[in-house]
């Protein structure tokens, strides 16, 4: 049986079908939450941003066009929401290694070696904003390079460049 597409579900929700939104939400809640949670160390702030994005999606339901992939549309809203947040918080937003002390692994999440996990998570947080954002879009959304370029408003080459820098930094942090 053919799975209902995200675009169809969003269209149905725009017409008043709440169950369609429930399905859509269940599909994307984890990826979108991690997109924020792994960039914003403060959990309350990450929760606010996450909820804010869904509120925007709800308000913009009638403006959505199925010609745009839902995932790209959703992450574009998320990206813009995050950029706005960074602009508001800019004086305090410089990547600060002190924040890494907040990233202690929780017992339930110890699927990999504790030290390696902490290093990876700390390495992601330590990345410059643009590189971290691009890397998480790639890892969480599964969007293509070209789609990420559209979402972030830069060229595909810029996206690749950011990904290369991010990957190299993380590799170095994991080796150390």
């Amino acid at each position: 049986m053919r799975e209902t597409t995200d675009e169809y579900l969003m269209q149905q929700y725009a017409r008043g079908n709440v169950q369609a939104f429930d399905q859509l939400y269940a599909r994307h809640r984890g990826a979108l939450y991690r997109y924020f949670r792994r960039q914003i160390t403060d959990e309350a702030t990450a929760n606010d941003l996450y909820q804010g994005v869904w509120e925007k999606i709800i308000r913009a339901r009638r403006k959505y066009r199925t010609s745009t992939p839902f995932t790209a549309w959703m992450f574009r809203i998320a990206h813009n929401h995050l950029v706005d947040h960074y602009r508001r918080q800019k004086p305090q937003a410089a990547v600060d290694t002190d924040r890494l002390v907040d990233l202690q692994p929780e017992p339930a999440q110890q699927h990999i070696d504790g030290q390696q996990r902490q290093q990876l998570q700390a390495g992601i947080v330590a990345l410059p904003d643009e590189q971290r954002d691009t890397l998480l879009l790639k890892l969480e959304s599964g969007l293509k390079i070209e789609e990420i370029a559209v979402v972030t408003g830069v060229s595909a080459d810029t996206v690749k460049s950011r990904l290369r820098y991010a990957v190299n930094k993380l590799k170095r942090s994991l080796v150390e």
């Binding site: 991690r34 929760n47 339930a108 699927h111 996990r117 990876l120 890892l139």
Partner: peptide, 14 residues
């Protein structure tokens, strides 16, 4: 990197 990232654990909203 993606494989290592997946093992970070499924963070989910409350």
């Amino acid at each position: 990197l993606g494989q290592a990232y997946q093992r970070l654990g499924p963070d989910e909203p409350p």
